[in-house]
């Protein structure tokens, strides 16, 4: 990773977090579907980053969102968990011939089918941990699971739209 990439990553981090806490924080569909756009930033980090760095970045992003949500630790626990699984998951679903050097997990680089297979389970895990930790138990199981599923779908749709709108030109950056 060269310096230019580090600056790009930091820029993307700030943009995603500001979008999350200023815009998407107040958008809730049908009372159950939330959008966690900042997770998109974490999922689109380049393949070549090692697991330790991924988990640490996940922790920082989670804590930052928590500060604005007044839910200290809840988002962080979900993102740390998701980022740890991401490392294993990326290895598991390596396409034939491996990943290209410097590639990022975007639709442009990897194709829609691979992308959804990569993103959906991780989003589900993130939201599963998030909502059940927030509910602190399985008391309202069906309400919480409906939140998990609908938020996963909503976030996925927003991420895909974002990919088609903004990432097409600089997919290999």
């Amino acid at each position: 990773m060269n310096n230019r990439n580090v600056i790009l990553v930091i820029g993307a981090f700030v943009v995603h977090l500001l979008l999350q806490v200023l815009v998407f924080k107040d958008i809730v569909m049908f009372n159950v579907a939330f959008c966690f756009i900042y997770v998109g930033f974490l999922l689109l980090l380049p393949f070549e980053m090692n697991n330790m760095a991924l988990v640490v970045i996940g922790f920082i992003a989670g804590i930052t969102v928590d500060i604005f949500y007044d839910s200290l630790g809840i988002h962080a626990s979900a993102t740390v968990f998701m980022m740890f699984i991401r490392g294993q998951w990326v290895k598991l679903i390596t396409p034939r011939g491996g990943y290209e050097v410097g590639a990022a997990p975007t639709i442009k680089a990897m194709g829609f089918q691979w992308f959804s297979g990569y993103v959906l389970p991780l989003l589900f895990l993130h939201q599963f941990v998030l909502f059940f930790v927030e509910a602190s138990g399985f008391g309202l199981f069906f309400f919480t699971i409906s939140k998990v599923l609908s938020s996963t779908i909503f976030t996925f749709i927003v991420l895909v739209l974002g990919q088609y709108l903004f990432y097409t030109k600089k997919a290999s950056a």
């Binding site: 330790m52 988990v55 640490v56 922790f59 989670g62 839910s71 200290l72 962080a76 626990s77």
Partner: peptide, 21 residues
Amino acid sequence: HRAFLLFLFLEIICGWLIVQN
């Protein structure tokens, strides 16, 4: 297992923060 241990460590911090909060 440093990645796993780091993961565990950060999750414990999160748990502690949640309880504190």
